[in-house]
Design a protein around this nucleic acid. Sequence first.
DNA 1: ACAGAAAAGATTTTT
DNA 2: TCTTTTCTGT
Length: 779
Amino acid sequence: MSDYLEGLNPPQRAAVEQMEGPMIIIAGAGSGKTRVLTYRIAHLLKNGVDSFQILSLTFTNKAAREMKERIGAVVGKSEAKNLWMGTFHSVFARILRSEADKLGYPSSFTIYDSQDTVRLMNSIIKELGLNKEQYKTKAILGRISQFKNNLITVKAYRNNPELIEADTMAMRPQMGAIYKAYVDRCFKAGAMDFDDLLLRTNELLVRFPDVLSKYQDRFRYVMVDEYQDTNHSQYLIVRALADRFQNICVVGDDSQSIYAFRGANINNILNFQKDYPDVKTFKLEQNYRSTSNIVEAANSLIEKNKTRLDKTIFTANDEGGKIKIMRTLSDGEEGRWVANSIFENAMNLQKTYDDFAILYRTNAQSRAMEDALRKKGIKYKIYGGLSFYQRKEIKDLLAYLRVIINPNDEEALKRVINYPARGIGATTIDKLTIAANHYGKSMFNVLQDLDNTDIKIQGATKNKLVNFSNLIEGFQISAQANNAFEVADEVVKRIGLIKDLQGDGTPEAVSKVENVQELLNGVKDFIEERKEQDLDNSLTAFLEDVALATSQDSKEDDEPMVSLMTIHLSKGLEYPYVYIPGMEETLFPSAMSINTRSELEEERRLFYVAITRAETQCYLSFAHTRYRWGKLIDCEPSRFLEEIDEKYIEHLAPQRDKVVANRFVDSNLFEDDIPRDKIRFRKPVSRSIRNQDKPAEKKTPFKQPQNLKRVTPSLAQKLGTSKPAQKLAVGNKVNHAKFGNGEVLQVEGTGVNIKAEVKFEGIGTKKILLQFAKLNILE
DNA sequence: ACAGAAAAGATTTTT
DNA sequence: TCTTTTCTGT
């Protein structure tokens, strides 16, 4: 019966068998963390713990679902069903729904996604008459998010001179007013943003001790996965809930903390031992995922971080291939190289495309990869980006459903009030907004009571408004009698959505219609699935599911495809072959994150996460030029490349071509790594042909030579320094244009500061900065 | 009120 | 480069 314990190594087993008291499992990458978590819950259940008493918080819905399935396999499905398992946001949304009235919210409160909050903030800034250059929507929202994650309410903000001072200094003196307006509007709309789901939970637990007591008593065993990525708000919730029984088990890896930018506090995991002095610590240090080359390379990288918990990741796996680094001229060439390499590996090693992943720092990098993959005929899927539920046609339909459930949901209302177009324009909406603010009512209430408001709206427009509000009220009545699918279907038919989308029959239009159809099917599936499991299948439940769904949660495809995603999204996943393009300064590490040590360390952890996704082979690449912001810019290899111990690395880029090198040195152009064909043939031919039918002044004639000139000096420097440590070794015989022949005695420094000590015949020893030296390797 | 044109903005990561 | 916002004229 307890055979599930057999396959575990000693620390894994010890962690599984530790049932009571505070404990922390420090789980290195690929150390079988999910297994331990799963079996630990199974173990609790087997030992008589009631499944209703376990709360398990994960980072993604997907992780929760998978874990539930695996537990179900061990202890039986019906038992697993009772577990409270999910993301912080989804679990606490559920709790907040049942306790909403205590906080003055309707239990059918809406969850605002980031699109909604941006729209709301835009209108607030406009209404307050603020300069939008000075008050950037995103920056303001980011600041408010910070406040909320640290439980700083509007009141607390106003009583905090330091915060006010900081905002005043940052040229945002109206921050407090904006914050208040934002919170008020959300509240009035019966809406919570993502941060509210945590903040309001805290409020609930603090203000209502009986509620806290209830949930403390209910959740006698609390588990938190990815603890290194919890923020302060989450930290407090967890601590409060576990306070009575102290059966709290957190799992995480400080080396994989990559969400500081959205408030994650790595100190939560670093200080856990201080919070619970009698904590039991378990370390899972054996990596089962990757080859030893990958594990060791990642170790050598992460050692460069100063703030770390003490642990040593090791593996018993094969050595495997070294980490391969490729250098290319341009981002386009980088993409082609990746696509080719995937194609060849799949072919030669008999792998399917499922075995490959391309992980990048920024979403913008996907394009070059996509282009190359498409040309090569390789199927791929992109995770992240616009999820299905964020597409316009879907959001529009969802907005109708939201208004039906919660007519005070202003963002949804504004979305649908004139969609499909029914002649209610911006002017009218502005008037309604003003009236709503003035009377302290929701916009929909104003609509229902037009006669008792003194806003000047023309008769024709007024009719349209009345028709609209009647339409919604009709839906609401229907929603009381019919299920979610029937309501959604009725909405689509009544507003003529399909007809509106069909339009001109372009492929885009067709796909929009299909999307709407798919959403309807989705509602149907949802209802049936929930019915089967005897769960809430209301429209409200559906909308909540959708609001908290992420792109990772989409269904699996049957056809094998290469996976493309940001490194952030890749956390928790693993692939045999991993490609990490764009290993360049200002891209990775990002230019925004090189100013402080902690930011840089987070970037390094991000790189660590990326490398450790790989099971058998990891490829890194960088380009010398890249299109960014529509401009061709020069790039320098990432500093991270030099931080991996050389012995785990193999460079794939061709070595310097000496003949070419010499020729270029003579003319003071020594970008000898550029293959000759590339110099001649990069696009100018086709461009000049295309330019023939364009006005002369618009064309950029022979951009190529221009680029060469502009690029030359710096590119030369970079090529000279790109891998000098490897290229220029002690003992090399070199030639210098001025000093003649010599022998390398020493190489020191990094990046642009690499120096070589060279003994020249008849001249003596010189220290030369490779960045400027015109050295040719003779042997 | 709306379509088409011009200008601005974006690219760090997201539950 | 490509998308989104704002302006302009009807």
